[in-house]
Design a protein around this nucleic acid. Structure first.
Lengths: 176, 176
DNA sequence: GGTGGTTACCTGCTCGAACAAGTAAACCCC
DNA sequence: GGGGTTTACTTGTTCGAGCAGGTAACCACC
């Protein structure tokens, strides 16, 4: 695949000399911050979700189903930008837990439709409450404007990564 | 039901940035953004790291060791804010891969010291390159100031979560 | 009506992450 | 110095995530 060859645009030393070096300490400040934030966030989500019998990630699937109704697995994969193999197993576990049901797609015998069970409706409020709570936790001291701002920042970073994924060339020479 | 527009949100256009983010509307925009960003970020890290024979997370351990020298596992856990059990197995795998060595701590027979092998030094450049690359990817179109800004935002969110973890009372009051 | 390619899903694998439970050494205090 | 606690690490488990490989159904085209 794309070997990130520095072809054409080397000169890695153009950086500002203020930072001693890019090792662990200053390696990738933003990257590192993302990493740490994500782990903390996931941890909190897990703790809030556990009493509900859900694991982090499963709630996203349920939210899609509650909102959109029955979906094929491939649709869920696309909606959540997830992985087919992961989805298979996540759905299996949700099915086993009684939160979803699967039935064959009448129009395509390869596919199966996943739908939330009536029983899962009880969960819905809980999950929404948990997500509101998590939001209030993570953005505790932010004003509405600041939250919007934060969201834009996150989305901008996400957009950059998505761009790079779609367009490996730009990835290789990322350097203003 | 499927009202694609979040109720009440002064969501200013600006969408299209990335994938449809349908559900979860009203749930937790910031939370959801964190989730998605984290996954993309991890994915990119994984792809860049794979040719080096490292899995995401392992490079952080190596960076600490390169920078600080031999460390006890418990120190690594504290430095990376990780989990003891995870660290045990990560170190085992790094050891098996020949990147680290373990020897008993002479001053504490419970502890073991982890140190990078000479062979791992070859990796160091590669890892640093990868992190620089990842940083340039994720912050591709951000100015230096904006990067600092982004980092502050991320750290602020992280701080909020850390606060809530340390102080469960505040967490509990996140509701009417 | 075959043939070849795509799509949908499943299974096996490795890995980080987190929880639980256990062992052993170190430490603290009476 | 004995008893209880804390600390350091290990192992077992479950889960999401991702890669690789496999099967079956679908589809387009000849």
């Amino acid at each position: 695949m794309t070997q990130p060859t520095p072809a054409g645009g080397p000169t890695p030393e153009g950086r500002d000399a203020t930072v001693p070096l890019p090792a662990a300490a200053g390696g990738g400040p933003v990257s590192h911050a993302i990493f740490r934030l994500a782990r903390l966030h996931r941890m909190h989500a897990g703790q809030l979700l556990r009493p509900l019998g859900l694991h982090p990630g499963q709630e996203l699937v349920m939210m899609q189903l509650w909102e959109l109704g029955a979906q094929r697995q491939s649709d869920l994969v696309r909606l959540l930008d997830s992985d087919a193999a992961t989805m298979t197993r996540t759905v299996q576990r949700l099915e086993q837990a009684g939160f979803v049901r699967r039935r064959p797609d009448p129009t395509d015998r390869r596919a199966s439709l996943v739908e939330p069970t009536p029983a899962s409706q009880a969960l819905r409020h809980e999950v929404e409450r948990v997500w509101t709570q998590l939001e209030d936790l993570v953005a505790a001291d932010l004003s509405a404007d600041e939250r919007t701002d934060a969201r834009h920042t996150l989305e901008r970073l996400e957009h950059n990564l998505a761009q790079a994924a779609a367009d490996p060339d730009r990835a290789a020479d990322a350097r203003p």
